[in-house]
Computed example of a mutant assay.
Amino acid sequence: MSHAVDFTTVSTAGLESSPVADALAGLRANEARYFKNKYDHVFAVEPADEARAVVDWVHGILADERGLVIASRPLEATEFQVENIRMAYVFYESGLSINVMYGLDDGGKRAVGFKLADGMDVPEELASFKFARQKSKLAGTIRGSYFVIKNQH
């Protein structure tokens, strides 16, 4: 069952098993605030087990584009469209958040983004990426990286 992410009262609901649950909840709330402010979109997530198609799509892109397999267990996921961009998010037990921005127009921007919740180590499978730091009132320090999607998915 999906639930809207509240970015005014940050909750760890659905993320309790994460060792960095508070920071991951802040990261999730930060994304919710961004989509509400930029697109007037309510960011809603559901348990990863109920969003298997979204998780499989994201994992398929990671495997196909970079040979990546994420070791951590997915906890929640969401998929939606804003303007002509398909968005997907997966939040992992380790504190990792992966998003896919997939422009639906020919030549549209397509990328995979990684964000690390405050307090988590860089996962071994992402050690080759360089992470930039960003401050967030909701999430503390977010470390982020990305790569451009080259193939059709």
Rank of each mutant, 00 (worst) to 15 (best):
M1A: 13
M1P: 06
A4W: 00
A4T: 09
A4Y: 06
D6E: 07
D6Q: 04
F7N: 00
F7M: 06
T8H: 12
S11W: 04
S11C: 07
A13W: 06
G14A: 11
E16H: 01
S18R: 00
S18Y: 06
S18G: 11
P19V: 03
A23K: 04
L24G: 02
L24V: 03
N30V: 00
N30I: 00
E31K: 14
E31H: 07
A32Q: 04
A32T: 04
F35G: 10
F35C: 09
N37Q: 14
N37A: 10
K38W: 15
Y39C: 09
D40C: 10
H41A: 12
H41M: 13
H41Q: 15
F43V: 06
F43C: 08
F43Y: 15
A44C: 05
E46M: 15
P47S: 14
P47M: 04
A53G: 11
V54F: 05
W57N: 11
W57Q: 12
H59K: 09
H59A: 14
G60C: 09
I61M: 00
I61P: 05
D64I: 05
D64F: 13
E65Q: 10
L68R: 12
L68K: 11
L68C: 13
V69I: 11
I70C: 11
I70W: 04
A71R: 08
A71L: 05
A71I: 03
S72E: 12
L75S: 09
E76K: 10
A77H: 13
T78M: 10
T78A: 15
E79T: 10
F80R: 11
E83C: 02
E83N: 14
R86S: 11
M87N: 12
M87S: 09
M87V: 14
V90S: 12
V90D: 14
F91W: 12
F91L: 15
F91E: 14
Y92D: 10
E93C: 06
S94V: 02
S94I: 01
L96S: 10
S97A: 15
I98F: 13
N99H: 15
N99Y: 14
V100P: 00
Y102H: 12
G103N: 08
G103K: 01
L104W: 08
D106Q: 03
R110D: 02
R110L: 02
V112L: 01
A117S: 14
G119M: 04
M120T: 09
D121N: 08
D121L: 06
V122C: 12
P123R: 02
E124M: 11
E125M: 10
L126H: 01
L126G: 02
A127M: 08
A127C: 03
F129G: 08
F129V: 03
K130A: 15
F131A: 09
F131W: 13
S136E: 01
K137D: 10
K137C: 00
K137F: 05
A139S: 04
G140I: 01
G140K: 01
G140S: 01
T141F: 03
T141R: 00
I142T: 02
S145I: 02
S145A: 11
S145R: 01
Y146T: 05
F147D: 00
V148S: 07
I149F: 07
I149P: 07
K150G: 14
K150R: 13
N151D: 12
Q152S: 13
